[in-house]
Write a protein that binds this DNA or RNA. Structure first.
Lengths: 346, 346
DNA sequence: TTGAAAGCGCTAACAC
DNA sequence: GTGTTAGCGCTTTCAA
């Protein structure tokens, strides 16, 4: 910038003003500066700018599990939205469950992230313990949870799908289609998503007087779904319907039920998931699921972001948006089940 | 930092030194500073540090298509590797093909990224036209292509899978299993990946004296695979084998062939992909594919990164690593095909 | 509308 | 080992 100023015979201050929307500068001066800058490929240094203005236009994003296809999808949309808002995304990925060897690395990465003075941190994950929230609080960085409800202690904001309501709708759907021995396959033990979905399942079972079964798969992964299916579906009194805490779990269970245990879905077993990842719609799977309202969630996130980028304190929000039940072949009513329904228990 | 220095009765320089590995500072002084800093949740400002040292430890990453499951996978590993190297990742996502409405946004985002003075930019994508490379060159930022071979003009480095060799191996695999009318389903028109995979296919066809067929799907997506299958597989002289330029394409084609066209795979149609995304291994799909050597590619990327982070000019590399053919059910030899093979053309 | 000058938070010479 | 000083590239008062 100093070079540019010298070359154009102006002060650095004038050159700097050319790069600012509302600055007091003659239109022609600005045009001159900008054209010369473009020719040189010059751009103001965002680090230096950030130091002075105390606005970096960096948004930190923490994603725990890119292997669950829900997250790449959400991340892509979030990234697009941030780019449109003129922000830059710093990404931290964190492997696995808290207490896991990798969890430490995640915290270190978050701390490193915070040292770049991001405008805020968005946690797009079911994990990351409260330690992360504390670190953000200590740094004075606003925190938004997407798809996770914060622990009671934190002052963070949160935007989630109505997990309990969605799971309840799915459970009713399963029961209405003739399920008599439904089971819930849980995901990551200490995630709010899992807890809420489970409670939706349990409450509908209670309401209908059905004994709930469940299996803690321990993770939101295809492999966990496989293991859960193997553990649950063998033996005489096996479940006749599975509500899985996420689609990727459901697909692992579904594939295992069909191809390893030889169970027909939906004839002998109903399966439902949660999220509506792209693979759920593939005809081989045709997985009934609850579609998360991603668009609405991101819109809410951007609304939350607006004051934060303007330097104002964020409006602490706890937003819960309803999803949509998407019924597909994995819970289709077959003739066999209709007959069962007509003459329930002997 | 000033506050900390005052509180501890030291100069800012001493406090600063506590945060640097090799700095000349007494062990006890350092311990004192670090413990007080930890208590306050203080961390040095990375922006200020970056300005002086001219090392930001920011690595820019451009990903074009998070909807293709290959990329989240690669991104997750890259991110982990970068975090381990003490770097922070700035992510730019870019929608679609060049010339597309979104392509402009991608360039704007890249320019914004460059203004944060990243140590380098890694392009994890088949797209992003040479304009991106020029912008990096103008900014003096080293550029590494992962999974894309650069245009002749650029000075950028590149790490790719041996696409031509892999596609050739797959083509031989298909022909050895009895394919007589193989077709290639291409992806994004102007990507090097697509061009190299296509050339591998064509050269083996030529070598074996087989007339190649092909269909330009126009994108590396499930939907493009669906459309390609519909366009190719109807009519009397339809292909009996598909080599798809990527797994996600192949899965779109495979699902459509089976569920919409009623074709049996592998009995009536062989299908192979490229990449080895997780879904390829799911039993419903059991897709034969060529596994990209992601681990080796990332290792090579880190080797390339090392001098760059040290401030040295990067060793311009054009690294091509061999993949592994993974044979699965979608190209299994069936009795029917064996018979065909035993008495080829009447 | 422009220029001069101060300073954001930190590091790196250089003295001591 | 530690303090002093200058300055990274920019924005932003304040005067002109």
């Amino acid at each position: 910038m100093k070079d540019l100023a010298r070359e154009l015979g102006m002060s650095v201050a004038t050159v700097a003003r050319a790069f600012h929307e509302g600055a007091a500068i003659a239109a022609e001066t600005r045009a001159l500066v900008l054209s010369r800058a473009a020719a040189l490929g010059y751009q103001p240094n965002a680090l230096a700018r950030g130091m002075i203005t105390r606005h970096t236009r960096i948004v930190g994003v923490v994603v725990s599990d890119l292997h669950n296809p829900f997250y790449p999808d959400a991340l892509a949309r979030l990234s697009e939205a941030l780019q449109q808002a003129g922000c830059n995304m710093m990404l931290v990925t964190g492997g696995g469950r808290p207490g896991h060897p990798k969890a430490g690395g995640e915290m270190a990465a978050l701390r490193l992230l915070l040292s770049y003075q991001p405008e805020c941190v968005i946690i797009l994950a079911t994990t990351l313990s409260s330690a992360g929230a504390e670190a953000c609080a200590a740094a004075g960085t606003p925190l938004l949870y997407l798809n996770r409800f914060p622990a009671a202690a934190t002052a963070a904001s949160s935007i989630v799908c109505d997990n309990a309501g969605g799971a309840a709708a799915l459970t009713r759907h399963l029961l209405d289609r003739g399920a008599r021995r439904p089971a819930f396959i849980g995901g990551l033990e200490d995630s709010s998503t899992q807890a809420e979905r489970r409670s939706g399942f349990l409450s509908v079972c209670a309401e209908r007087g059905i004994a709930p079964r469940e299996h803690p798969a321990g993770a939101f992964s295809y492999e966990a779904g496989q293991e859960a299916a193997l553990a649950l579906l063998q033996g005489p009194e096996a479940p006749d319907a599975l509500l899985c805490a996420s689609d990727i779990l459901a697909l692992g269970a579904l594939e295992t039920a069909r191809h390893r245990l030889g169970l027909r879905v939906p004839e002998a077993l109903l399966v439902a998931g949660f999220d509506d990842i792209p693979m759920a719609a593939w005809p081989s799977h045709a997985l009934t699921t609850l579609r998360q309202p991603l668009d609405a969630m991101l819109r809410a996130a951007l609304d939350w972001l607006e004051p934060v980028l303007a330097g104002l304190p964020p409006a602490p929000a706890l937003i819960r948006l309803p999803g949509t039940l998407v019924a597909r072949g994995s819970t289709a009513v077959t003739t066999m089940m209709l007959e069962e329904q007509e003459c329930p228990t002997p």
